[in-house]
Design a protein around this nucleic acid. Structure first.
Length: 422
DNA sequence: CTTAATGATTCATT
DNA sequence: AATGAATCATTAAG
């Protein structure tokens, strides 16, 4: 068969003139010049009618030499494809692409439809309390933009996918059509398809990259925005202040208390912790500045307590950790002296019917009220002697939860520098 | 615009 | 990990 092929090969040029009407007749010498002609020819092809092309194709297919030429082409193909196959190997999974994919997945851009996610977030916000609207309002911008990005990403991706598929089918049809004229193995089609896919996937990667970039920018903006603070509403501040001043001797709410405060204030536990951290340090820094506030809340809490106790129930006071059994443990345990003083105070002003946690929670309050009214100055002075400002000076809260006298401001907490550093 | 108030963050400490 | 202290960055008030 070999010599025959060669012979056929030799026969090939003479058969050409049929294809190349007048233009392609030139051979090796005038190549550069020919390029112009070929170009011209190509340009004119577009002008040719489909019928003409179809007829030409048909003529080609029906050419008597066609089967032989086909075989030749097959043989040549065999060799070249082998060499191509050697160079062509499985592409490794691009690590960068994986990185991008992972990130997009993590950001919820490429993951499952975020409709559920946002619904869940909304549900969570709703569950966290009535004023969860704050939180969702804060995040709505972020979420809206994220979903916008996601939508663009998905539509673009879909567009690419569609275009890729369209193009692939086009190419496959083309190759299949051409396979009647020239030998095209399925492997080759496959390879072509993979090349197309690779091209498109590189485009996709660009899309993913830019999407990632957008998300990152959005995210950084959001993180910056996270620093944007919104003041708590008045009610929340009141609740927090009530707790603070009614636990002034030990303003360290337990985890449970924090949770309850958080729930009541419609803020997070972390925010409660922040608030107490700020409050403690700022109160300590300049007690005088908080005098008025302290007295106010003390009085208010005292009224609440009085009402509560007169009703025979303490569950009403927002400042006290209810569930009397356990919540009071952290301050009951370390203050026998306090308890004693409370009892004496109770003897003076209220019925001794206070129970459990409520007692401790009202110690400071009662002090305030009593000192405020002035009628019980003796008892107060005794308390002051018992726990003078010296303790405040030495650090106050952490070691011994001692009642701090708010009413005598000791206007000189040496460093009155407020923290206005900007 | 300036300043105080305030929530959040960061870092050191325990 | 929780807290204190300092600081940042925004908001509200003047």
């Amino acid at each position: 068969a070999e010599p025959e092929s060669r012979a056929l090969c030799a026969l090939l040029p003479p058969s050409n003139p049929h294809m190349q009407d007048g233009t392609g007749g030139s051979d090796g010498d005038g190549r550069k010049q020919d390029i112009g002609d070929i170009l011209q020819q190509i340009m004119t092809i577009t002008d040719q009618s489909l019928d003409e092309a179809q007829a030409r194709k048909h003529a080609l297919n029906c050419h008597r030499m066609k089967p032989a030429l086909f075989n030749v082409l097959c043989e040549i193909k065999e060799k070249t494809v082998l060499s191509i196959r050697g160079a062509q190997e499985e592409e490794p999974p691009d690590p960068q692409l994986m990185r991008l994919d992972n990130m997009l997945l993590a950001e919820g851009v490429s993951g499952p439809e975020k409709g559920g996610g946002s619904a869940a977030a909304a549900a969570a916000a709703a569950a966290s309390g009535g004023a969860g609207a704050d939180n969702s309002a804060e995040h709505s911008d972020y979420r809206a933009k994220l979903s916008q990005i996601r939508q663009i990403y998905h539509t673009e991706l879909e567009k690419y996918e569609q275009a890729c598929n369209e193009f692939t089918t086009h190419v496959m049809n083309l190759l299949r059509e051409q396979s009647r004229t020239r030998p095209i193995s399925p492997k080759e089609i496959e390879r072509m398809v993979s090349i197309i896919h690779r091209k498109f996937s590189s485009i996709q990667m660009q899309l993913k990259q830019s999407t990632c970039e957008a998300v990152m920018i959005l995210r950084s903006r959001f993180l910056d925005a996270r620093r944007k603070r919104r003041n708590f509403n008045k009610q929340a501040t009141e609740i927090l202040n009530e707790y603070f001043y009614s636990h002034l001797s030990n303003p360290y709410p337990s985890e449970e208390a924090k949770e309850e405060l958080a729930k009541k204030c419609a803020i997070t536990v972390a925010q409660v912790s922040n608030w107490f951290g700020n409050k403690r340090i700022r109160y300590k820094k300049n007690i005088g500045k908080f005098q008025e506030e302290a007295n106010m809340y003390a009085a208010r809490t005292a009224v609440n307590a009085a009402n509560a106790s007169s009703h025979g129930s303490q569950a009403n006071s927002p400042s006290t950790p209810n569930s009397a059994g356990s919540a009071g443990s952290f301050n009951m345990s370390n203050s026998g002296d306090l308890f004693m003083s409370v009892q004496s105070l109770n003897g003076d002003s209220y019925q001794g019917a206070q129970v459990g946690a409520n007692v401790q929670s009202q110690v400071d309050t009662l002090r305030h009220v009593i000192s405020q009214t002035g009628g019980y100055s003796e008892g107060l002075t005794a308390n002051q002697m018992y726990s003078p400002q010296g303790i405040n000076a030495n650090g106050g809260w952490p070691d011994a939860p001692t009642p701090s006298s708010v009413t005598s401001p000791t206007e000189g907490p040496g460093s009155v520098h407020s923290d206005t550093s900007n």
